[in-house]
Design a protein around this nucleic acid. Sequence first.
DNA 1: GTCTATATGTAGATAGAC
DNA 2: GTCTATCTACATATAGAC
Lengths: 224, 224
Amino acid sequence: MERNFLQEKQRQRAPSQRALATRAKVLDAAEQVFSRHGFDAASMREIAMSAGVQVALVTHHGGSKEELFWRVVARRADELSQARMDALEARRFRGPLTVHAIIECFFAPYLEKAETGGAGWFAYARLVAIVSADPKWSDLAAICFDPTAQHFVDELAKLYPSTPPRAVAAGFVYSVSALIALLTSDWRMEALGDDRQSLATRFEELIRFCAAGIIAAAESATDF
Amino acid sequence: MERNFLQEKQRQRAPSQRALATRAKVLDAAEQVFSRHGFDAASMREIAMSAGVQVALVTHHGGSKEELFWRVVARRADELSQARMDALEARRFRGPLTVHAIIECFFAPYLEKAETGGAGWFAYARLVAIVSADPKWSDLAAICFDPTAQHFVDELAKLYPSTPPRAVAAGFVYSVSALIALLTSDWRMEALGDDRQSLATRFEELIRFCAAGIIAAAESATDF
DNA sequence: GTCTATATGTAGATAGAC
DNA sequence: GTCTATCTACATATAGAC
């Protein structure tokens, strides 16, 4: 998906291989540093050092600190949104959609990418937590997250035609917050007695948790 | 509850009324500013200005920025923990505890304080979100949150003696993350179609969501 | 306890040489 | 595209007078 909310200067000629590699290094380093320290505590200097380049180059490729954060988030959000939509469409052909199936189509693509795609996806989870936690990033969320989320909420709402969609939307937000907790608050869980489980096992458990929760919320909010 | 993890200098004599008022103003202002901007983006200067005092007075009463954050969080955490434990004990006398009842005893005391206690409790919810989102605050969470949370997890685990406690602990963390989402991510929910509901209505819905989720997670993880 | 004044560090951003 | 050097602002923290 081509993003146009971050205006690039009209390029005179195609960037060199080296320039592209530098840009990727900068984005990767920014992803790690932002995920470790959060947006405000992260510094452009640490990003530059981590990428092995000069500070001015970070600005050159990433724009301002805020633009850089947008770029880093949007990069993976696009890829993940696409995978989620694909999973949902593929699932339609395997029988009628259930709450469990819809949530699985939203959660599972991340699991697959995290298991095969390396550390970047774990860092990305923390970026999502940052965005979700602070209204400062509402524009970013509206552009990068809301369209896909809305699609899944609508799909869930179809299963409960006599339930106000707001109840389904609330259940979906609770579910996503639980997913973020699973991915970023393992230290909290372990403090409360959760020993280490495979990520896949935890995902299965989480999906059951969320599906049951959404069903309970939707059914109790049904208009009669 | 008297806290001793933030060492006070041995006081020579009781603080004056004015000093106590100043200290309260500083803590209140810090609570608002931390909740608006997060820990890193908040500045001691803004806290001082918001409290109507000099920067040096903020340091004098609150200690370093980090100590100040601890004090602000601990102040309400103590009060809320006490209310939660009281609610649970009171509930015991009204019949056997259920998952729904236990979660309600954890959630409802906050609702009551938020509805009667003013803006400070809403700001506090954002502080809890900050603490829960960043491993940097794991020590603070361990001291201020974990003892009560552990108590509730243990109580839930008693209902499922043949389920590994870790499944219950995970369900509890998901539930708390959903509570935090309810209190701090209303902007996300409204973006997805949740119109304004009373806080009490949302709480009822959330409690149903969490209870059903915990039951589903616990039952599916039962050893046979 | 309170205030003024300041020490000391580091942040984001950019100008301009190469 | 890349690097050096620097501008400007604001951060936390504290010393010391009252």
